[in-house]
């Protein structure tokens, strides 16, 4: 059913920390790896070893340069995937009911058996979260690893999305935003988590944390720890005596 639920019991989603993401692409690889063998048809590649390779991915990591008014530019690595929006425009446009948002946990999913591959949902998404699989002819999107997070056959520490589990810097966090005491809710509140493209009025569940303010480079020289030499032994005694005269 493509009518959005009025409310969802849980609001499962991700917090993505732009301060700690190093752009290693591990989440891209882990996502592709897990979703190649789990929920739905595999994420196909076209001509992967040819001159014009192409493929379906549910997660992409961009790199941006941000130039403040004063000071040096900074590089921000920027993972982009489905935000599991509360007002998901991709769901309401679907003519077949293949796209839906779950009332129990807010995950936006595609029933691939009902998808006609018209591509209208991908047009309706501002974030480029949906890619039509060229081999299967159906729409693929992030499932929030719905086949991991409730999977009792996996060890408990693995019951989170593959991207979160694999992130080596802890830049990705998974949890329930409907619970104000959950660590994702607290992270978003404490660090000023924000929505992408708020002007599109999609009410994304996923929140992004802004890069922390860095010290100005002229205040903190990279060599500072090396220059702060503490004299020891005879030189140290001499230093103390001379200092008292």
């Amino acid at each position: 059913m493509t009518q959005l639920p009025a409310t969802t019991a849980k609001k499962l989603g991700l917090v993505i920390d732009l301060d700690t993401c190093v752009g290693c692409q591990a989440c891209v690889t882990a996502c592709k790896g897990w979703n190649d063998q789990g929920y739905g048809v595999p994420l196909s590649d076209q001509s992967p070893y040819g001159s014009d390779p192409s493929g379906t991915f549910l997660n992409r990591v961009h790199s941006y340069e941000v130039q403040p008014e004063a000071g040096p530019a900074q590089i921000v690595n920027f993972p982009r995937s489905c935000l599991h929006c509360e007002d998901a425009p991709c769901v309401t446009v679907c003519p077949t009911g293949a796209s839906y948002k779950r009332a129990e946990d807010g995950i936006v999913l595609v029933n691939e058996d009902a998808c006609i591959g018209c591509g209208l949902c991908a047009w309706a998404c501002p974030y480029g979260a949906r890619e039509l699989d060229a081999a299967a002819g159906v729409m693929k999107k992030c499932t929030l690893c719905v086949d991991r997070i409730y999977n009792e056959n996996l060890p408990e520490e693995d019951r989170e999305p593959a991207c979160v589990r694999t992130c080596p810097t802890g830049a990705r966090h998974f949890g329930d935003f409907a619970d104000p005491t959950s660590h994702v809710s607290r992270l978003a509140a404490e660090r000023g988590g924000f929505d992408l493209m708020p002007e599109m009025a999609t009410k994304p569940t996923n929140k992004y944390l802004p890069p922390r303010k860095k010290a100005a480079p002229d205040e903190a020289s990279l060599l500072a720890p090396l220059l702060d030499v503490q004299a020891t032994g005879f030189a140290g005694w001499l230093d103390r005596v001379l200092g008292k005269i």
């Binding site: 059913m1 493509t2 009518q3 769901v91 309401t92 446009v93 679907c94 003519p95 077949t96 009911g97 293949a98 009902a114 998808c115 006609i116 591959g117 018209c118 591509g119 209208l120 039509l132 699989d133 299967a136 002819g137 159906v138 729409m139």
Partner: peptide, 19 residues
């Protein structure tokens, strides 16, 4: 369409979908 044989399903979601 990726799956034109399923086009009949497109009649189901008239409540929200212009298509």
């Amino acid at each position: 369409l990726g799956h034109p044989e399923r086009a009949i399903r497109a009649f189901t979601q008239w409540r929200t979908s212009w298509l």
